[in-house]
Design a protein around this nucleic acid. Structure first.
Lengths: 145, 145
DNA sequence: TGCGATTAAATCGTGTACGATGTATTTAGC
DNA sequence: GCTAAATACATCGTACACGATTTAATCGCA
């Protein structure tokens, strides 16, 4: 019937996540640009620095992305000489992604980034950690459905 | 020199936001699909339900998007008959976006969505509101730089 | 052992995001 | 009142995301 009192977009939790994610990517941009990386490419490298030689599927689990997103992204990383992609000899369906020398070197070059982001956030590490856990819990709940 | 203890991606605040945003969009998907809307299109309509007749620039302020993203999105909403786009007579540089009858009707059809999302989140409204404010504060800090 | 079901990546099409640039309109300064 | 600067939107190119489908390899089980 009549228009109900519309909830302003600024008060929606989904929009706060949406816009905070964009703001976060914007904060990373100048730091990553210096390394020739995009934000999702950086996340993929972070996952590989933690554990090298993961399959596309394992990376997808870690990053919550499907092969339709990862395959082109990994090809771009390969074109930059940061990773190598090769079929697994034991199971030819799987593709293992391994860091190259340049890919491993990138970790040192990116080492200052987390500190820069922490500073830009204007929050204490403890506050950020607490927030992270709450946001992760929300995500896990949403995924559980 | 040696590889430093790599921070697992699961412990990064940026990744929790990134993956929670994707999970949120995934939660909205079936609800919006029934209305023929994408998630950003829905957000644009929410902004218009709150205030009709905004310019592209005002919508961009509300949604934190530029015209290069909004223009094609609004054209798709226009093609669906949900909004109309017209140059402002007072200032021909500006384009005003107004809801059509169908666009206004959509608000009623979408009225159950926030409740569904609240339920899927498995959190109380108070907890979600508190989380929203923290995430918004982080976003504003990051944008301030 | 053979073959249908399952699994893992890749491919395809659509829709965001966004930096850089283009174009039309308005404003400002002289 | 005329032009340079500023403003608002649109366009273009690149890179995600993701549903749906395809292709190739492995598994399950009669």
């Amino acid at each position: 019937m009549e228009t109900k009192p519309a909830l302003p977009i600024s008060e929606m939790i989904c929009f706060s996540l949406y816009s905070a994610t964009h703001a976060m990517q914007h904060a990373y941009k100048p730091l990553l640009e210096a390394l020739g990386l995009t934000y999702p490419q950086y996340l993929a490298l972070v996952a590989l620095w933690d554990e090298d030689g993961q399959t596309v599927g394992q990376l997808g689990q870690a990053l919550q992305l499907e092969s339709n997103t990862l395959t082109p992204l990994l090809k771009r990383l390969e074109a930059q000489g940061l990773v190598a992609r090769a079929r697994d000899a034991k199971d030819e369906r799987q593709v293992r992604v391994t860091l190259t020398e340049a890919g491993r070197d990138m970790q040192a070059r990116a080492a200052t980034i987390p500190g820069c982001i922490l500073e830009k956030s204007g929050m204490t590490l403890a506050a950020l950690t607490a927030l992270r856990d709450q946001v992760s819990a929300l995500r896990d709940q949403l995924r559980a459905e």
